[in-house]
């Protein structure tokens, strides 16, 4: 095993174990903490894939923003100090089905389409090391990404649609969370 593989295994073990804590902890606040650790582990996985920008984005958006939102939501809706939630609720069966289906989908994509997947060598082993890419390409990848967000030949339409999506999310959230004007008076 190379150093890279050991690092990968360690980070994956960390991510998975914290993810298990998220679903087993009865105390919602601790579960949220473990969720942050899971996000950190995912950021670590991005770094091992040489995707530094994604790792930083993961940190900024998921730990810095989404987790705060999650904790705020927990604090506003639950009695904090006594919180011990039951491990199962009415949606657990549905959640199980969703989890199995999405896992199957990912597995199918990777297994069935592995010959179309140029980066994975033919003999797929879980520990196949990643391809070597020149450092200049990696350093410039963020710039390439930024350029393709807004060039007419690439992803400018999805980019604008993302903006509309964000706008819809903001407006929707305010409509749901904010009391109506007449309620306030």
């Amino acid at each position: 095993m190379t150093v890279e593989q050991i690092v990968f295994l360690l980070i994956s073990a960390f991510t998975l174990s914290t993810a298990v804590i998220v679903v087993t902890k009865r105390n919602l606040f601790h579960a949220a903490l473990a969720l942050m650790a899971t996000f950190l582990g995912v950021a670590g996985l991005y770094v091992t894939l040489d995707a530094g920008f994604l790792a930083a984005a993961q940190l900024l958006v998921y730990i810095g923003a989404i987790s705060i939102l999650v904790i705020f939501a927990i604090m506003m809706t639950r009695r904090l100090m006594q919180t011990t939630e039951p491990a199962y609720n009415a949606q657990s069966g549905f959640a199980l089905v969703t989890a199995v289906i999405s896992f199957g989908l990912i597995f199918w994509v990777f297994y069935v389409f592995r010959e179309f997947w140029p980066l994975i060598p033919d003999a797929v082993t879980p520990l196949a090391s990643k391809p070597i890419v020149a450092d200049e390409i990696l350093q410039g990848s963020v710039v390439v990404m930024g350029r393709s967000f807004v060039s007419s030949a690439a992803y400018v339409l999805p980019f604008e649609i993302a903006s509309v999506l964000l706008l819809a999310a903001l407006v929707g959230a305010i409509i749901v969370a904010w009391p109506k004007a007449e309620d306030k008076a």
């Binding site: 958006v61 705020f72 710039v143 930024g146």
Partner: peptide, 27 residues
């Protein structure tokens, strides 16, 4: 107050926007 939650929500939107804008600014 729900106010805190609203600020956090608006912040999340702008944060995601920043993730898009930074690589564009670099390019």
């Amino acid at each position: 107050k729900v106010q805190y939650y609203i600020y956090a929500l608006v912040f999340v939107i702008f944060d995601v926007e920043a993730v898009f804008l930074f690589p564009i600014a670099a390019a």
